[in-house]
Simulated assay, not measured.
Amino acid sequence: MAAIFATLVGGAMPAIKEFGFNFIFSTRWDPINFVFGAGNALYGTLVSSLIAVILATPVGIAIAITLSELMPKWISYPVSIAIELLSAVPSIIYGMWGLFVFAPWFANGPQLWMLEHFSGIPVIGTLFGGAPLGQGLLTAGIILAFMILPILTALIKDALKTVPNVLRESSYGIGANTFEVITKVLLPSIKSSIFGAFILALGRALGETMAVTFVIGNSQNVSSSLFMPATSISSTIANQFNEADGLKMSSLLALGLVLFVVTFFVMGYARIQLRKGRA
Rank of each mutant, 00 (worst) to 15 (best):
L127H: 15
G173A: 14
V181H: 05
L152H: 00
A176Y: 12
L160Q: 10
G129S: 15
L206A: 03
T178C: 01
L149S: 00
K184I: 02
F146W: 15
P188L: 06
L133C: 04
S171E: 06
A140G: 15
G129W: 09
L144S: 12
L133S: 12
G203K: 13
I148S: 01
T162S: 14
T153Q: 02
A140M: 09
G129Y: 09
A145R: 11
S171C: 06
M147F: 05
I148T: 03
R204I: 03
S170C: 07
Y172S: 08
L187K: 06
I182A: 04
G175C: 02
I182Q: 04
G129K: 14
V181A: 01
L127R: 14
I174T: 15
F198T: 07
F195Q: 04
I151R: 00
G207K: 02
L200M: 10
E208P: 11
L160M: 15
T162H: 10
G141L: 11
L137S: 14
V185Y: 03
V163R: 06
E208W: 10
K157F: 05
F195W: 07
L206Y: 07
P188Y: 07
T139E: 10
I174S: 10
G196E: 03
A197H: 06
T162V: 09
A201E: 02
F198M: 10
A176K: 13
K157S: 06
E208M: 12
V166A: 07
K161Q: 09
I182L: 05
A176W: 07
D158T: 02
D158E: 12
N177F: 06
L187C: 06
D158V: 01
T153N: 01
S170V: 11
L137A: 15
N177W: 05
L167Q: 15
V163I: 10
T178I: 07
G141Q: 11
E180M: 09
A197P: 08
L137H: 10
M147I: 07
L152V: 03
G134C: 06
P164W: 08
R168Y: 13
T162N: 14
